[in-house]
Design a protein around this nucleic acid. Structure first.
Length: 753
RNA sequence: GGUUGUUUAGCUCAGUUGGUUAGAGCGCAUCGUUCACAUCGAUGAGGUCACAGGUCCGAGUCCUGUAACAACCACCA
């Protein structure tokens, strides 16, 4: 054996495991019955972004590998299923950045070309993440590798969408949505980041009363002014009308309870098309909806000529200037408030009315609430249960359509002759971008040109549509598929049953994998996507399969830098796992991630820690090496553990070993990996090496059976945490020490006698 | 605005149902080492467990309040 452990050989060990078939469980011929007899242990890997290398957060998958390896050693049929995610908006955003470097943008391509380019871009990088997962030693079943754009997955989520539509859970509506005019797509509430902005409150004279607003530019779209009905200052004005400054439109004054008489002037301008609160008022009072900003962010024809095609900030400046000139600007005060920003590009979100596809979540959420409430699904650490329940109770309908190309296009088809008011954007033969209603285009362009150059379409909110292309074609040949794609979470929310081969059309025809492995045992992820992902999987799982997708949700820590700061590109403190693996070995990195960490608390990863754990790995290596030297020296041919021959030291170390076996088993069962790893570290280094080994140096022959026994069990206990070094030692010494199992990875977990 | 979490040795953090002198890793000090490992060994210094009350025979641990920090959720102008 080398003087120090060489982590460079880790890939050989990985191949050894993979070739042994240890990662790939065999599905019995009668999976249903087999499952009843002994439930397999199953984890579906949260699919990392196919396009990016792993970041520090992904290496926390080590938690899953610990559990998987532990259960495999317990003899459970064990599956850890890998996959990668196309990561819709994320990948498209990264690709667009690349385009920008070349001086191009998404507007230069029709959607099928853009899709193909992103596909190629993602394919180039696809293997990076996979090789890194292997590098970390993760015992994933690569024979079952999945991708979110695999045709069978796509077919499945389409089938589920159809079923939801059939059940009345899908609808199209023109509601106010969070729209990023830069990214060109709508977002759900979860994708909006609230930031405190130091802005102003403008007091504007509206004639009979004055209003205060943080967004003077939206006054061009005002269709009412609201006051509190109990406000004696304004009571008599309710029901009257006023003339909107700068625009000249007559708008009503309405009485609305939610208006706070104490705030500002006690009167609120109402812009139903550009403010969520005003939208609600607009619906309630049947106000006019006047959208003044288009999807490209510019003011449209609904505003006076002079403001047209300006961006909101420019409109604001112009409006304020004009109000001031007209003597209608009463005062401006500093005011700091919360403004929604796009989580991708960081620009302010424009609340805007737009036709979008929605999922009704009430019935789905009720079930998903119930199963967590009654612990059918247990959430660990427990404190996340409450935030899950709170979130689920207040859930609103889910806007699932995104105006991007990289993803699953909605299975919706429109016949354009039935919907002549559909707005179409395409690139014509000469390469020019054209946007207009279909009825204005159809006589000037042949349909093939529109279809091939298509970038996007916006069908009217009440457009007639079909769920299959065939049906739409029956109505006429001028048929286009919806250009919106699904929110990424609509796809990944269906990951557990989809990867296992569930058949939504006929569940009895589901794959054996589904029958055997579903529901899965545990879902592990970081707490930041509890709502995005975990909640959606629970809703989908219950609705589609009638069963929970997993029995336990384990939420792992966030990996921070050495100072406890969140890693981010802007801070410049992002670490690449590969660097650390190259320097310290995968085992050291794995152990550093769990050593002494409390469940659910964040981790500060420092090189000090990595060095410490590399030293531990080396300590383990050298203890094994010492035992090898002893065997060579003494020349023993067989071992038998005979308690009758134990002296006090032997008894003490065996007793301590038994304690550690029990403690480790208990700690892993309770997901206390920090405690387990710390205990093992202390036992092996300080009890076994520092005390026991030092004491037996003068009686190697008698101690060898005990040395071999403690080493074997230590290797087994440590294997889930540091698989490479333990397997390497095992393979190196198994013959000399008469260990009988072929591989440590499939060896039996130690039992306490 | 609402919710949750954190506050323990110089640094990063453990501390499981409250139980005798509060622990680890790193760092630090002194000594040692050709005989498994300097990626080592031995010894040691270092903490009024954020603060103020309370419950208890007994509180780092449970309760109340305060402060600082962090995160999450949120359509108020």
């Amino acid at each position: 054996m080398d003087k120090a452990y060489q982590s460079a050989h880790e890939s050989d060990i990985y191949r050894l495991w993979e070739q042994s078939g240890a990662f790939t469980p065999v599905v019995p011929s009668d999976p249903v019955k087999a499952r009843e007899a002994r439930e397999p242990f199953t984890i579906i890997l949260p699919p990392p972004n196919a396009n990016n290398p792993l970041h520090a957060g992904h290496i926390m998958y080590v938690v899953e590998d610990i559990l998987v390896r532990y259960h495999r050693m317990l003899g459970d049929p064990t599956l850890w299923l890998p996959g990668t995610d196309h990561a819709g908006i994320e990948s498209q955003f990264v690709f667009e950045k690349e385009l920008k470097k070349q001086g191009r943008s998404r507007f230069d391509y029709d959607r099928q070309t853009l899709y193909r380019l992103i596909d190629e871009f993602v394919a180039q990088n696809k293997d990076i993440a996979i090789s890194q997962l292997k590098m970390m030693g993760f015992s994933l079943d690569w024979t079952r590798l999945k991708f979110t754009l695999d045709p069978d997955h796509v077919a499945r989520i389409y089938a589920v969408f159809n079923r939801m539509h059939h059940d009345g859970l899908v609808y199209r509506d023109e509601k106010i949505v969070n729209y990023c005019t830069f990214c060109g797509t709508a977002f759900s509430n979860l994708e909006v980041v609230h930031k405190t902005v130091n802005g102003h409150l403008w007091y504007i004279n509206y004639g009979p009363l004055s209003v205060a607003t943080t967004r003077p530019e939206t006054m061009l779209g005002d269709t009412a002014v609201a006051v509190n009905p109990s406000d004696i200052r304004y009571q008599k004005l309710i029901g009257t009308k006023l003339k909107l400054p700068l625009v000249g439109r007559e708008i009503p004054i309405i009485g609305e309870e939610s208006v706070d008489p104490e705030f500002g002037t006690g009167a609120v301008k109402v812009t139903p098309s550009h403010s969520p609160e005003d939208y609600d008022m607009g619906k309630k009072f049947h106000l006019e909806f006047i959208r003044i900003f288009d999807y490209d962010g510019r003011a449209n024809a609904n505003v006076p000529e002079k403001y047209r095609s300006l961006y909101p900030q420019q409109v604001r400046e112009a409006v304020v200037r004009d109000l001031e000139a007209a003597g209608l600007l009463e005062k401006v005060v500093d005011y700091s408030h919360e403004v929604g920003h796009c989580y991708k590009c960081g620009r302010p979100i424009e609340p805007i009315t737009a036709p979008q596809w929605f999922i009704k979540v009430k019935t789905l959420a009720d079930q998903a609430l119930q199963v967590v409430q009654d612990d059918t699904i247990k959430i660990f650490p427990k404190r996340f249960k409450k935030s899950y329940l709170t979130w689920m109770k207040n859930l609103r309908d889910w806007p699932v359509s995104r105006q991007i190309v990289w993803g699953h296009r909605l299975p919706i088809w429109y016949n354009l002759d039935e919907n002549p008011d559909t707005q179409i954007t395409f690139i014509d033969k000469s390469g020019k971008n054209i946007t207009d209603l279909y009825k204005n285009l159809k006589d000037n362009f042949d349909f093939a040109q529109i279809k091939n150059g298509l970038q996007s379409l916006i069908a009217p909110v009440n457009a007639k549509y079909y769920l299959t292309e065939a049906e739409a074609l029956q109505a006429g040949e001028h048929t286009l598929q919806e250009t919106d794609t699904f929110d990424t979470w609509f796809s990944s929310g269906q990951w557990p049953y989809s990867t296992l081969g569930f058949n939504p059309e006929d569940p009895s025809k589901s794959a054996p994998d589904f029958k055997y492995f579903y529901p899965t045992s545990l879902l592990d992820t970081m707490w930041d996507i509890l709502f995005f992902w975990v909640a959606r999987m629970i809703m989908f799982g219950l609705y589609v399969t009638g069963k929970v997708p997993f029995e336990v949700v384990h939420l792992h820590s966030r990996v921070n830098d050495a100072q406890g700061q969140k890693m981010s590109k802007s801070r410049g403190n992002v670490i690449n796992p590969s660097t650390f693996v190259a320097q310290y070995g995968a085992d050291a990195l794995r152990f550093a991630l769990v050593y002494g960490v409390a469940p659910g608390s964040d981790i500060s990863l420092s090189e000090d820690k990595l060095r410490a754990q590399r030293n531990f790995v080396n300590k383990l290596w050298n203890a094994a090496r010492f035992i090898e030297l002893m065997v060579d020296k003494v020349g023993i041919t067989g071992f038998s553990l005979d308690p009758a021959k134990f002296n006090a030291d032997d008894k003490a170390i065996i007793a301590e070993l038994n304690r550690v076996i029990a403690a480790t088993t208990k700690n892993i069962n309770r997901y206390h990996f920090g405690a387990a790893s710390e205990d093992l570290y202390q036992f092996f280094w300080h009890q076994f090496c520092d005390i026991y080994i030092e004491k037996v140096k003068d009686r190697p022959a008698e101690a060898l059976p005990v040395l071999a026994h403690v080493l074997l069990n230590s290797l087994k206990l440590l294997h889930p945490f540091i698989p490479f070094v333990t397997e390497t030692i095992y393979q190196t010494l198994k013959e000399k020490l008469h260990y009988t199992e072929a591989l440590l990875i499939t060896a039996a977990w130690p039992q306490n006698d």
